[in-house]
Write a protein that binds this DNA or RNA. Structure first.
Length: 255
DNA sequence: ATGGCTACTCCTAGTAGA
């Protein structure tokens, strides 16, 4: 079973690439972030034609998440406790093949110290609370998406330059560690300990070709799924070519 | 150094992303 996460930065702009990628990689589950479209305008027919069920939690212009799956998902949740009904669309939870899938698009935070930054830290706190109250760490739970945090210096192309900056600050890293301390493993780190493994590169300044990246998209799994996880791949080929997203997909294989 | 680019919107300028 292959489960992927991809911040597509507009599902409508990325549709040709998404369709081609689905056909090539044949993932069983895909968690999309930054779809940037209301549910009524999601390119449903194009995705369903490829044999995927679509679960949507979209909004206009910003944010928006979706789960594509070969088998029908069940039990959708679209808001965190504490979210108002008009909250930013940043989370989508469903059960697929007995696995609880949590698709997240964590707030960016703007800059350290801004109100958006406080919102980001608070959002992480609420996510941790939700996990605790909804699941057990012995359950099959997989949380993936754009976490907007590079967990460690080895996940950053220039740790000196980024030290203390947004995506890398101490409190953000602590918020992510607090989340994983519930009972989650960073799936990529089950298999690779090296640096230089990035999932996002700035569009500007030829960052991709210069290797100026960060690893901010993650697949986190509880222990029973960690045992089943045989491989995690960052599909950096998707960052190349015409009209790429600024994020590459990450794909986990579960036995 | 200048976010050096991209995508969005009641759209040709401002906002946001990370």
């Amino acid at each position: 079973m292959r489960i992927a996460t991809w911040n597509v930065n507009s599902v409508r702009t990325r549709l040709p690439r998404l369709i081609s990628w689905l056909g090539r990689r044949q993932p069983d589950v895909v968690c999309l972030q930054e779809t940037k479209v209301v549910d009524e305008a999601f390119p449903l027919a194009d995705i369903e034609a490829l044999g995927y069920h679509c679960l949507l939690n979209g909004q206009k212009t910003y944010n928006g998440v979706a789960i594509l799956s070969r088998v029908p998902p069940s039990g959708a949740v679209r808001l965190l406790p504490g979210d108002e009904s008009d909250a930013e669309r940043r989370i989508l939870i469903a059960t697929i093949d007995g696995i609880h899938i949590v698709n997240v698009y964590a707030p960016n935070g703007g800059d350290v110290g801004l109100p958006k930054y406080a919102y980001k830290l608070e959002w992480y706190r609420r996510l941790r609370e939700f996990l605790e109250s909804s699941f057990d760490a012995s359950d099959d739970v997989l949380i993936c998406g754009d976490f907007n945090v590079a967990p460690e210096d080895r996940d950053v192309w220039d740790p000196q330059k980024w030290r203390g900056q947004i995506l890398c600050s101490g409190p953000e890293r602590e918020a992510l560690r607090n989340l994983t301390s519930w009972g989650l493993k960073d799936a990529l780190r089950l298999h690779s300990s090296e640096g230089g493994l990035y999932t996002w590169w700035d569009y500007r300044a030829g960052a991709f070709h210069r290797g100026w990246g960060l690893r901010i998209d993650h697949i986190l799994v509880t222990e029973p799924l960690a045992k089943r996880c045989t491989d995690v791949e960052i599909d950096r080929n998707e960052r190349k070519g015409e009209k790429p997203s600024d994020h590459a997909p990450v794909i986990a294989t579960l036995e």
